[in-house]
Design a protein around this nucleic acid. Structure first.
Length: 965
RNA sequence: GCCCGAGUGGCGGAAUGGCAGACGCGACGGACUCAAAAUCCGUUGUCUGAAAGGGCGUGUGGGUUCGACUCCCACCUCGGGCACCA
């Protein structure tokens, strides 16, 4: 690639000093040190046990595990936005090595999954070939960046040695159940023992409820198949017939988290339909409370915690039973205190009791309504612009507190997937119910008297008769119309109190009980695709699933020439999915001996979702070559174990984008907790500290027709922009192919070198802020490094001009102020301000070099050390030239001399009425009295006071004086 | 609609109760050069003034304080998340 920098050098060789720090010299230096680091295994981190153990090297050092979010090896390679977080963790890791820490930092590749597979389909190249070459491209780009990774620990999720353990963890989950009393996962064999011994009563499940005498049924009398069904119903991963998100455009089902709010696929933006299918499902809801509560123990930003809390969506309330001719209708409500105001019931149109409760007269209307609802997709149905619709089904139910017969309706605003799929409608206390009641003229009974201000605001006369109300009243209020012979809520009482009273009444009378509901659904875990981990599951002649024995893992993904999913119309919601693996006839069946002699089994043909591999990769970094277990327990305890009582343990710093707030971060926490419960890891959480980096955005340009033009060819002149001479308009967006505004790291390496590129990315803004990329600005960091180079190396002769002369006092003080500030900034990930302090100091040094012709050794050494986390190649090169024996990577970071941080004189601002009027240079030890005297004697202050006597004099010792008139 | 986060020069940003605009880009002026590039030196919030100086200034309006970019209240704008969740 030809660049302006290069051509300038080539064309006018004589005018540029031969040893100036330019892109080509930077590249030479960078490649030299990258090779050196590789050959010397500079960044290998020793383990306390297992294959990577090196106990001597651990000696005395505290551990630090830093982690970047996995990258998808996409075909386009990296653009400059991708490495932002990687550079930040690298700078932090290098800094911490110099602070004496044993730092583990590695990078792997999330090479299974939909993005890689979609890309393979587009290019027509087999995903294995495709992902392998993509990984190779990424490895090269990242290596050129000079990241201090332990190369031995790099893994890909598609490695057989890796997904063997992904399958093994799946089987751990398969072979577990959640014990609600102990609040943890336990091996399924323990459940079997407890059921067999009678220690645990048989659950009331559908599989054994047909025998009405359930209390008399015991384990021994059940058939093998019936036992198996009970057991399978308890597994943490199980097969279930459930409404799933079917995406014909991708030929697969998707998890709730992979579907956007407008009912389309996160990947590919295809329509998604709800339909029932039998699918592998992970019981993540069993962990809802722990996933929620343990957020409080994590060092994450509040906004991410909030997003997880909202996603889990815990609601506290009561489950209430309304009797009806078709049996009890279970209802979930957060406001049991409003039960007296429940004037009708609304079922979801899909509710199982609808048929039984529909009267002959309403049959036709009900069928018609259900049909119209079925045709709507989720986004249409959930649009709150629509008026509430519904239809009475003819049946009634009994309100347990009033004894009244209330009508039952169906309406699409009640969702089958939340709570019980049925609500008690309290129109006086709920806005949605109110609108529905008004639309269909259903009775509205007040159960709380709203305050007068409420009526005033709505401009209606205060009245407990709801006829004139224009809204529901939601909030605290005096209870009215809320008593029967057994229970009375009427009068002044708090909502909490009323809920408590009602809940205990419901429990006493068998009408219900307090209950908790979650928005979080169980995790749909199978994908009807090719490029994923095969399930280590086979089915017997009864269609019962069995685990493939551990010693037969991995179940390898068969090679397949035609890896494409069944091609379907994106709007075809009818056809059943046929996974590609179902076409591999010789792989489909297998003869195994699972304990009762060799038998033929049928393999599971779905594959795992993209998220499986990233649910535990941080654990494999710890012990990547271990053949006997997924991670040695001692190794896990060393790197991730809790640091004290109450600590969750986990990765010390995890840096990545906010887009994984609910997907990856929730799934990975769930798997980690299962592994913790089963005793495989000592940490309760995978990621103790999470830091969300910002994004790099970029300008994009459109011509007069509205077409995007290549941003790299747009010319700026006096704030106007032209492309091939034609004016274009500028906009702002994500860097990428569609906006033709990508800039690649390779361009930066060629034009400036990796060190300049690293420095620019770190200097742009604080790490958590999104920032616009501007190639034009990069030169500032190159100039900085050129000045550093020139301060130490003669550009004409390549000789070091560092001497043993003592540094002048002011320069030494500036150095120590810089050290002090940079240490603090690095510690707090404030690399942008650390860089500005280094530039400031180097500018001071430049002044000194300009007059004296050389840099004092006592300045050169710490300057190079401070630079080394940020621009390690340049620092290594200068360090070598300074002939220091200790390796730079492990040389302690400079420490500021406190004596040099306090100066003998200080500048004090003097204000009159809070406005700055003068500055005084005074002794640092000045007393308040002397300060006041000096300030009052200052000519500018005398002028500003204009003869007036201050009413008050504020003196902040050694900081400021303020005269108040 | 609800919940978060953010608004500072031409641009990216710094300052978290005490000198607003550090540092970088750009722009302008100068040195070097036949010239240009690169590099180096200087100026650069805005209005006013010949200058010294002065007025104004951190989205808007109010408040607390001797003193507010910083804390409190209300509003506006932008970005993000959730969205009939019972």
């Amino acid at each position: 690639m030809s660049t302006t920098t290069d051509s300038a050098q080539n064309g006018r060789g004589g005018s540029i000093p031969p040893y100036r720090y330019c892109a080509s010299l930077a590249s030479q230096i960078e490649e030299k040190w990258q090779n050196y680091w590789d050959q010397n295994h500079t960044f290998d981190a020793p383990n306390p046990a297992g294959p990577l153990a090196d106990i001597a090297k651990l000696a005395g050092r505290e551990k630090l595990f830093i982690l970047d979010m996995f990258a998808y090896p996409s075909g386009a390679g990296l653009h400059v936005g991708h490495p932002l977080g990687y550079i930040a963790t690298d700078v932090f890791g290098r800094f911490k090595r110099m602070m004496g820490k044993n730092v583990l930092h590695a990078m792997g590749y999330d090479s299974f999954g939909l993005p890689a597979e979609q890309h393979a389909i587009v290019t027509g190249v087999h995903p294995r070939i495709n992902t392998e070459s993509n990984v190779a491209v990424m490895r090269r780009q990242l290596r050129r960046l000079g990241l201090a990774h332990d190369q031995r620990r790099s893994i890909s999720t598609t490695d057989e040695n890796y997904y063997r353990w992904t399958q093994w963890i799946f089987l751990q989950i398969f072979n577990s159940w959640y014990d609600e009393t102990q609040k943890r996962a336990r091996p399924i064999s323990e459940l079997e023992n407890e059921l067999a011994s009678g220690k645990r009563a048989l659950p009331k499940t559908e599989s054994n409820s047909e025998s009405k005498t359930e209390s008399n049924t015991d384990w021994k009398s059940l058939s093998n198949l019936a036992r198996r069904k009970i057991i399978d119903d308890h597994r943490l991963v199980y097969l279930a017939d459930a409404p799933v998100n079917w995406c014909p455009g991708l030929g697969t089902i998707l998890a709730n988290e992979e579907v956007t709010t407008d009912g389309r696929s996160d990947i590919g933006n295809f329509p998604v339909f709800k339909r029932n299918m039998r699918q592998w499902t992970m019981r993540i809801t069993a962990y809802a409370d722990r996933l929620l509560n343990d957020l409080d123990r994590l060092d994450w930003s509040e906004s991410i915690k909030l997003m997880q809390r909202n996603w889990i969506g815990r609601s506290v309330g009561a489950q209430v039973r309304f009797t009806s001719s078709a049996g009890a209708i279970e209802v979930f409500t957060t406001r049991p205190d409003t039960l007296f105001g429940a004037t009708f019931i609304v079922l979801s149109p899909e509710h199982p009791l609808v048929d039984a409760l529909t009267s002959q007269a309403q049959r036709q209307a009900v069928d018609k309504y259900r049909e119209s609802v079925r045709k709507l997709n989720d986004s249409e149905r959930q649009s709150d612009q629509r008026n509430k619709t519904g239809v009475a089904i003819g049946g009634t139910a009994t309100n347990p507190v009033t004894g009244a017969q209330i009508p039952v309706w169906i309406a699409d605003y009640v969702l089958i997937g939340y709570g019980t799929g049925a609500i008690m409608a309290v129109p006086a206390g709920d806005e949605r119910d109110f609108k529905f009641a008004r639309t269909y003229n259903l009775p509205v009974v007040a159960i709380q008297m709203p305050p007068d201000e409420w009526f005033a605001l709505l401009e209606i006369a205060p009245s407990s008769d709801c006829t004139n109300w224009s809204n529901a009243y939601v909030g605290e209020g005096t209870y009215i119309n809320s008593k029967n012979p057994d229970i009375a809520l009427d009068g002044e009482r708090s909502m909490d109190d009323a809920i408590r009273l009602m809940n205990s009444w419901l429990e006493q009378h068998g009408h219900g009980e307090s209950a908790i509901t979650y928005k979080l659904r169980n995790w749909l875990f199978s994908r009807q695709r090719y490029w994923g981990e095969p399930f280590p599951i086979v089915f017997d002649e009864d269609d019962m699933p069995h685990a493939v024995p551990d010693e037969l893992l991995p179940v390898k993904l068969p090679e397949l020439m035609d890896f494409k999913p069944q091609s379907l119309d994106p709007n075809d919601e009818i056809t059943d999915p046929l996974p590609p693996l179902a076409r591999v006839t010789d792989w489909l069946t297998v003869t195994l001996d699972l304990g009762d002699g060799p038998k033929k089994y049928r393999r599971e043909v779905n594959v795992m979702p993209q998220w499986a591999g990233s649910c535990w990769y941080e654990l494999r970094y710890l012990d990547p070559t271990n053949e006997s277990c997924f991670v040695d327990p001692e190794v896990e305890r060393y790197w991730m174990g809790p640091r004290g009582a109450g600590d969750t343990g986990g990765v010390d710093l995890y840096v990545g984008g906010v887009e994984h707030a609910v997907l990856h971060l929730l799934y990975a926490r769930f798997w980690h907790k299962v592994l913790f419960d089963l005793g495989h890891v000592s940490s309760e959480e995978p990621f103790h500290r999470l830091f969300n980096q910002g994004y790099i955005q970029a300008y994009a340009y459109r011509d007069a027709r509205g077409q995007i033009v290549p941003a790299s060819e747009v010319v700026e002149h006096d704030a106007t922009f032209t492309y091939q001479g034609e004016p274009v308009t500028r906009e702002f967006g994500k860097m990428g192919k569609s906006l033709k505004n990508s800039v690649t790291p390779d361009e930066m390496y060629d034009e400036f070198g990796a060190d300049t590129f690293r420095l620019y990315e770190m200097s742009m803004s604080p790490l958590d802020a999104s920032r616009p990329w501007n190639t034009r600005d990069v030169v500032g960091m190159q100039r900085f490094l050129q000045r550093v180079w020139r301060n130490l190396v003669d550009e004409e002769t390549n000789e070091l001009h560092v001497t043993n002369d003592l540094a002048p006092e002011h320069l030494r003080r500036a150095l120590h102020r810089c050290i002090h500030g940079v240490r603090l900034d690095m510690e707090n990930l404030r690399f942008n301000t650390a860089i500005s302090k280094l530039i400031e100091f180097n500018n001071a040094l430049t002044q000194h070099v300009n007059t004296s012709g050389s840099t004092p050794h006592e300045i050169a050494l710490p300057l190079v050390q401070m630079l080394s986390p940020l621009c390690p190649h340049l620092a290594e090169e200068l360090w070598q030239r300074l002939e220091v024996a200790t390796p730079l990577t492990y040389t302690p970071f400079p420490v500021a001399d406190p004596a040099l941080l306090v100066s003998e004189t200080i500048e004090i601002p003097v204000q009159v009425n809070g406005k700055l009027r003068a500055r005084l240079i005074v002794s640092a030890e000045i007393s308040d009295d002397d300060l006041r005297t000096l300030a009052l004697a200052d000519a500018k202050i005398i002028q500003a006071l204009d003869g007036a006597t201050p009413n008050k004099i504020i003196i902040v010792p050694r900081r400021l004086v303020n005269f108040v008139l």
